[in-house]
Simulated assay, not measured.
Amino acid sequence: MKVDIKGFAKPLIESLIAVIIGILVGAIILAFSGYNPVEAYSALFDGALGSKYGWAMTLSAATPIMLTALTFGLGAKTGLFNIGGEGTVYFGAIAALILTNIWGNILMGLLGGIIAGIAWMAIPALLKVFRGVNEVVSTIMLNWVAYFLALYIIIQKIPNPKDPNKTIAIPLSARFPIIIKGTELSWAFAISVIAALVAYYILWHTTIGYELRVSGYNERAARYAGINPKKTVIWSFVLGGIMSGLAGAIEMMGRPPSYAISQGMANIYGYGFDGIGVSLVGRNHPLGIIFSGIFFGMLKAGATAMQIEAGVPLEMVRVVQGIIVVTVAIPGLLDLLKRVVRK
């Protein structure tokens, strides 16, 4: 099989340039705000990559957002703007908590996340196929429905009787083993990498993957080729639901120390939205998402060191992170907009 080196080199170079620009813009803002950018970035990279602990925390932070990025990326390859990963994560986490407390094993937790993800993503899929509802509108609204419905379930149905600040916990028998003791890195990271590899295989080595890509590139041409666009839409949402549902499940089963949903869903909120940026930085490609997920994990893991060692307040850390993320995501966003305009 011939590999298109130029096809990989161009987006890689564009992303690297965007990373450099984002870092430079962040450095300028830090300097104007009275902080030493060299010290700040040194602390960030040292905290995220300078030790075994730093690497472990980086990979741990990357684990769930790689999966939610696959949800958005699979949608983008099909010509959809699926931003419903956020709500799907909530129900994947809840399903894993309930099923592992009933059956007490990892497989049931993963299965629960998958089923919950497919079920929740089926709603915007059916609305799109049978009623023509734009997926951006439906998924945004359903994210809020999911948020408040999940809060109700967490508070009313599965609270921890010994600690009202969190839900019931994943039992010991259903928790992923920790790879490096004293860190949050578990074998859940392997699930995310395997999922990305499976997504790559589906997209480029199966009939359904070919149909998804053709439909996303040019729906009219896909129709002439005998491809059913309704079928590709449903498959895209189903695969996306599996990924985000798994994200919620493995976050519960592989994140010490609580292995539960905390008050206000603080420990699972935002993963779906972060996944959009990760996917755009990875150019909506499953293999690119692995590396962009690690890059985002580095930014998250190094934030604490940036505050402690360089004295940069949390708000400024988030400003710098946001600037880097937006800058790096621009090339992928432009690709997506070009595809929309072409359609």
Score class of each variant (00 low, 15 high):
residue 44 L to T: 02
residue 94 I to C: 05
residue 295 F to Y: 14
residue 89 V to D: 01
residue 328 V to I: 14
residue 125 A to E: 03
residue 52 K to V: 15
residue 36 N to Q: 04
residue 149 L to M: 09
residue 20 I to Y: 05
residue 291 F to K: 04
residue 93 A to I: 02
residue 277 G to W: 06
residue 71 T to E: 10
residue 189 F to Q: 07
residue 162 K to E: 14
residue 147 Y to A: 05
residue 145 V to D: 02
residue 323 I to V: 15
residue 180 I to L: 15
residue 75 G to A: 05
residue 90 Y to D: 03
residue 99 L to T: 13
residue 287 L to F: 14
residue 282 G to I: 05
residue 147 Y to Q: 10
residue 129 V to D: 04
residue 244 S to R: 06
residue 80 L to V: 03
residue 118 I to A: 04
residue 80 L to G: 02
residue 154 I to E: 01
residue 40 A to H: 09
residue 316 M to D: 11
residue 136 V to G: 00
residue 275 G to R: 06
residue 257 P to V: 07
residue 258 S to H: 11
residue 74 L to M: 14
residue 16 L to G: 03
residue 306 M to H: 10
residue 25 V to G: 04
residue 40 A to T: 08
residue 219 E to N: 10
residue 101 N to S: 08
residue 111 L to I: 15
residue 68 T to E: 08
residue 235 W to E: 06
residue 181 K to L: 04
residue 237 F to D: 02
residue 52 K to I: 15
residue 94 I to T: 04
residue 82 N to Y: 06
residue 58 T to N: 10
residue 57 M to F: 12
residue 152 Y to T: 01
residue 76 A to Y: 04
residue 305 A to R: 08
residue 22 G to Q: 05
residue 144 W to P: 00
residue 60 S to V: 01
residue 258 S to E: 13
residue 20 I to C: 12
residue 27 A to T: 11
residue 312 V to W: 08
residue 8 F to A: 15
residue 40 A to G: 13
residue 179 I to P: 04
residue 241 G to P: 02
residue 208 I to L: 12
residue 194 I to G: 09
residue 92 G to F: 03
residue 50 G to H: 08
residue 73 G to E: 01
residue 213 R to E: 04
residue 31 A to H: 09
residue 261 I to G: 10
residue 178 I to K: 03
residue 316 M to I: 15
residue 228 N to K: 14
residue 59 L to P: 09
residue 288 G to H: 08
residue 289 I to N: 01
residue 226 G to N: 06
residue 236 S to T: 06
residue 1 M to C: 07
residue 318 R to T: 12
residue 181 K to Q: 10
residue 226 G to A: 13
residue 267 N to A: 11
residue 122 A to I: 04
residue 283 R to C: 03
residue 174 A to L: 13
residue 26 G to L: 02
residue 276 I to E: 11
residue 54 G to A: 12
residue 139 T to Q: 01
residue 336 L to S: 12
